[in-house]
Design a binder for these strands. Structure first.
Lengths: 175, 175
DNA sequence: TTTACTGTACCGTCTGGACGGTTTACATTC
DNA sequence: GAATGTAAACCGTCCAGACGGTACAGTAAA
């Protein structure tokens, strides 16, 4: 009975995210989420009364994780640009998973998810702009980050992508 | 009965893509596709005996569209870089829709879709590399294109994004 | 006659959700 | 400190509707 660090609620959200990321939204059913979290369906519905509430719970947690990430980015040793690009590649962290999961939900026409993702993007951009004082460069770097992120989530992983980007950004004096 | 340009088979594929893009894969059911194309369910299953065959049909058409797009990119008046970036933004063309739709399918762990998208990416990259003769720059530009594409499909539309990218790429001498 | 459908009636499985228990931890009362 | 109460944290089962797919009878044009 020991060795179970996270509480059930978080484990359910973890399971929901994992299914969304690895198998897509069609596979992320209540039954599947409950099974993945090793909880009965009744147990799931005790914590989240509907699938909608599951989504809400996930997005609320995402915003919290996002605030922490932005803070880390702002104070990163190697600077926010390097931090942003490095973490745009899916490292398999909890935050990465939550981000990808929210993307899946956003695609189902769910404005709650698009809003959350849009807010995160604004926070990141503000840090980039504050550091670079160059809107075009900040926007372009954000797009590169989006590209890295997109490639990762679509399984189009190009191993040396980050190296090439660093090369180009060095030419621009942005790194 | 006139005024119906496309044949039923294509209209079914169009409807499938449209549903995938605007409402996500959960909404793209056989019933919904048939209704969207104004065809009976029996009619749909006459052309495509299963949902799998619908996907196959879509991906086959996508590769054809892709070959045409790469050819246009190679011979574009303003050069392949400008063409690639401009068309990375969703213009609402048939090809854009097919691309986004395939992305949705790829996320459901469907390797056929990932393979098709991977091939397209390789074709584009080959043209960029051939034109620029600079791997880092070519990769970075492809990432920017992916970023533009990603933002568009996630509803994170930044209106002036392309302007900013052009600005930065001009500094690099890539445009 | 063949091709290209429409329309209806099904079937088995999956899905979101409702509901009625059960166990455990802890507080309250006597 | 034994008896009682109560709320949290579940489990297991059931159900209506949706889903992918089948089957088939009929129609209308080429």
């Amino acid at each position: 009975m020991a060795a179970q660090e996270r509480n059930t609620r978080d484990r359910l959200l973890d399971a929901f995210e994992k299914l969304l990321v690895t198998a897509g939204s069609r596979a992320a059913t209540l039954d599947a989420v409950a099974a993945e979290a090793q909880v009965s369906k009744g147990g799931l519905l005790y914590h989240f009364h509907s699938k909608d509430q599951l989504v809400d719970g996930m997005l609320t947690r995402l915003r919290e994780q996002g605030r922490a990430d932005v803070e880390k980015m702002r104070t990163a040793k190697k600077g926010p640009v390097d931090f942003y690009l490095t973490t745009s590649i899916n490292t398999g962290s909890d935050f990465d998973r939550a981000l990808i999961a929210a993307g899946r939900i956003a695609q189902e026409n769910d404005s709650r998810a698009s809003d959350a993702l849009g807010d995160l993007r604004e926070w990141w951009f503000a840090v980039l702009l504050d550091h670079l004082q160059d809107e075009s460069l900040a926007r372009t770097i954000q797009l590169i980050g989006d590209g890295l992120y997109f490639d990762d989530t679509t399984g189009l992983n190009e191993k040396n992508a980050l190296k090439h980007v660093r090369d180009v950004l060095t030419r621009l004096g942005a790194l």
